[in-house]
Structures are given as structure tokens and as C-alpha cells.
Design a protein around this nucleic acid. Structure first.
Lengths: 243, 243
DNA sequence: CGACAGGTTGACCGTTATCAAAGATCGTGG
DNA sequence: CCACGATCTTTGATAACGGTCAACCTGTCG
């Protein structure tokens, strides 16, 4: 993690090679909310169990139907989680950035993945196998509490999202999404869409065409201004939220 | 609440009175998946911490905005969990029947309820306070694993539901719902809707009118047959699922 | 510089929400 | 136990929201 290098892999990490030789980007573990409360020596113990893997853009961390066997923590890059609905349409569930993790669902259900995890760019991932994680959970019960809390947050999010799909029109869903892209720390009224409009459409349960049109409408109404590189400046938040 | 009494509460249970004197319907605890793996003496310890409360139809176990402080386990009756969306529409999240629990979300997030829990009929609930539950989790880490597993299931469910809202038409959502009402144990092709069509509409993100029309269409097409008392007989499951 | 995925815009129409009004069902109190 | 009112359900007519198809534009990257 030093130098100009954004990452310092040994060769073994390339092309899905599993790397166990050094700490590498495992330090990402210290950033993860479910672990960052532990003592240094407990942390070291966990670090020892962690492996590191790299994925190139478009490669899959797992696919629907795969047997579940690990918890994956993103240390660099971006991962898109999506589902294929019964009728074959893709629905983007969430985008993972460094510090986020995935794989828990199938892990604790002790079963099979129902979604796809695809690297959106060059991505490094730390993984902990199921049995090691189980050991840690029983050994350090506070980790379980942390995960419980993380799950609760996610469940709340997911249920809120489902409720929105069920009750709000596309226009509102887009408006709310823009709002949520903002409030991260700074009070700036500018945001960067975390994904392409195509993926956004899939995330919000609509089509790229509709996203395009609605954003154009928002712009005409003076609520927002679209800038290059997926940037959007919000000019009138209240107006936007009251569409 | 008295009279022929289908249950044997002491007087203190009436009108939200908390009852701590006897085992009562606390035995419901033994039915809950997160506890039913424990040893008898561990179970007894938990039983001691459990309180029992009754609710009349229409009363709220909690409301959005309430401070969270307990886990609620249904021992008799039915509870409807619903949200109010940003634009004020109601969305039914789930219906709880005996053995189900609720309150976990706000509990582990350590915060405030975002949904409403309303008794749909005369309902008895067992409750465990937050601090007691935390003690148990640290004392019996396997409980945490059970809850983790339960959360994972729920999350999977919720994400599947959200994906359906995002990608399937109302017609398909109704068809899938009917299918899911079936597969519980028996292979019978008859099912009983677990809620009114009004609530079902809210659950599926549509309107009572549309539910009514689509079911009529399914009937015309020979896929189902509607019987009295919310009963539905499925005549052609494949046809139904391929609408 | 060219190719290709991503994005925009227009025309069209299917699905489903809405409004209204009549009919069925359920729970309640007399 | 019956009758009443409230709530749920059905059916019809209407319109709008947003999906689909098609064509064209654009920016990003080899």
C-alpha cells in the first residue's frame, strides 16, 4: 500500500491467484466496520486467515447457483451485485466499494448464491472462508453483534427500497436516489452518479430511456444541472423532492 | 378479553398490562427457531426474562418513530408490519403469525422503528428487552448465529421481493405470490390468502381493483378458481406461472 | 481515428392507476 | 341471533405513466 502504486501485489495475486504470503491489501480488514473494534492481536489473528484475490473487469466473484463458501471484502475497485429475475431481467442490487463486503447471505443461509457479483473494474478482494468465520464468531461474539447490526441496516435499506418500488413512481424514485447520492459528508450540492445510467435504470427498476427523459425534465424544470462525467449539480432540492 | 377465554391470562395481562407471574404463553419461545436448539436449562433462563403482553385488534405493538427497546415474539394472533412511504402510501411488509418475531431491526441498529406493527386480531406477544437479549447473545453465541441466519433469509427474501417489484409486471407478481402461498408442506392445490385483498394489494405494490381484475382473468383463463373465505384452488400452475 | 457501448430523442401503445358506484362480507351491538 | 354499518370487493370507463422499438448522437478507449 505504499509508493505510487495503488496496490502492490506479488505475482501470485494475478488472475485469481490466491496470495497468502504477506499482509498486502489485507489491511483493508481494519477498515471494515465489523472488525475495526477488535484488539490488535485479535485483528492479527483474523488477518492470518484472510486471503487476497484480484479480479479483472467483467470477471465474476460468484454467480447465482454457486455454492457459497466465503465472505468477500472489497479492498480496491468496484463490484456490482445483481440478480436475474424470474423473467430474465437484470436487477442491480447494490454497488460495493472498498470496505464493503458480500457473500454473507449465502454464507449464513448455508446455501447457494442467488445473485451475481461482477467486478466493474480491476478489483482486489479479501476473503475469509466460512469455517474460519464461524470460528471467529464463536470466539469473538462481538463480531456477530457487529454483523447483526450491519444486517439490520441492510434489511432496513432493502425494505425501504422495496416499499419505494411498491409505492412511488419512477420520477420520485429517481429524485430520492439523487438526494441519497448527496448527503455523504460534505454539504456540496454536487454529486457523481456511482454507476452508468444503464445500471442505474436497472437499480431503480426502470429503463435507460426513462432515466434520460426524467433527468432532462428535472433539468428543464431547473431542479438540476447535468455536467460531464456523470456529475450532477442540484439547484433546487426541495423542488426536486416534491415532483 | 375475559369470558370463555381462549387463553389463560392473569388479569395483569389486560390492556397492555405486562405479566410476569407464570409461564403462560411463554412456551411460544420453544417454537422460535432462534431459540429451539438450546438446552432446557438455558431455555428456562430465557423464559424467566420474557414478558407477555396482549393486544386487541387495531392496537399497535410499535409505530414508526418509536424508540426501539424489545424483541417481540408472536405467540397467538396476527401482526401486520407496514411502512408509510415518503408520499404517504402504506406498504405492507409482512404478516407475522405465531413463532415469528419482530423488532430486531431497530434493536440492532440501536435506534428508531421505521415501520408500524399493528395487531390484526386479538394477539399475544412475548417480549425480551434489548439489554437482556444482548446478554443472551454474548452468553450463548449460537443464538447470534441463529439470528444471523434468520436475517440472511429475510434479507434474501426482501431483495428478491425488491427485484420482483423492479422487473416484473403486476400480473406476474400476483402469480408468484399465489405459488408461494402453496408450497407449505402439503401438496394440496388449495391455498388461503393470508390477508385481505386490500392488504395484498399493498403488499404487492398495486391496488385492490387490479388484484380483483387479475384474479378474475386467471379464473377466466382456467388457471385458478376462487372459493369463499379467501380460498383459491389452483387448477393449472404452469399456465399461471407463464402468464 | 474508428468502433462500440452508452446515452438521447421521438412515436406509439399496453398496463395499470384512478375515480365512481354498486355489491358482498364481516363484525358489532341491540 | 339478527340487523345494521363499516369495510372490503367487484366492475366499468378513462387516462397517464412509462416501457418498447427504432434511429441517431456522443464520449471513451484501443
Amino acid at each position: 500500500m505504499e509508493g505510487k502504486q495503488t496496490h502492490n501485489h506479488c505475482n501470485c495475486c494475478h488472475a485469481h491467484g490466491v496470495c497468502t504470503v504477506s499482509a498486502h491489501n489485507k489491511s483493508c480488514i481494519t477498515l471494515v466496520p465489523i472488525f475495526n473494534h477488535l484488539e490488535k492481536d485479535q485483528m492479527d489473528e483474523i488477518m492470518k486467515a484472510v486471503k487476497s484475490v484480484s479480479y479483472k473487469k467483467g470477471e465474476f466473484i460468484y454467480s447465482a447457483g454457486d455454492q457459497s463458501d466465503s465472505l468477500y471484502i472489497v479492498s480496491r475497485g468496484k463490484i456490482k451485485i445483481y440478480r436475474l429475475s424470474e423473467s430474465g431481467k437484470e436487477q442491480t442490487v447494490r454497488i460495493l466499494t472498498p470496505g464493503d463486503f458480500t457473500g454473507e447471505l449465502a454464507l449464513f443461509r448455508g446455501s447457494i448464491h442467488e445473485s451475481y457479483a461482477e467486478a466493474m473494474e480491476e478489483t482486489d478482494v479479501c476473503l475469509i472462508t466460512r469455517s474460519e468465520l464461524q470460528d471467529f464468531l464463536l470466539k469473538f461474539p462481538t463480531i456477530a453483534l457487529r454483523i447483526l447490526s450491519e444486517f439490520a441496516n441492510r434489511l432496513e435499506e432493502s425494505e425501504k427500497q422495496a416499499a419505494r418500488f411498491a409505492t412511488e413512481k419512477v420520477e420520485k424514485r429517481i429524485a430520492f436516489f439523487l438526494e441519497e447520492c448527496l448527503d455523504n459528508r460534505k454539504k456540496s450540492m454536487e454529486l457523481v452518479l456511482p454507476m452508468s445510467k444503464k445500471d442505474l435504470a436497472s437499480y431503480l427498476g426502470t429503463t435507460p430511456e426513462t432515466i434520460s427523459r426524467k433527468l432532462a425534465e428535472f433539468e428543464d424544470a431547473g431542479y438540476i444541472r447535468q455536467l460531464p462525467r456523470r456529475k450532477i449539480k442540484i439547484l433546487d432540492l426541495d423542488g426536486l423532492l416534491s415532483v
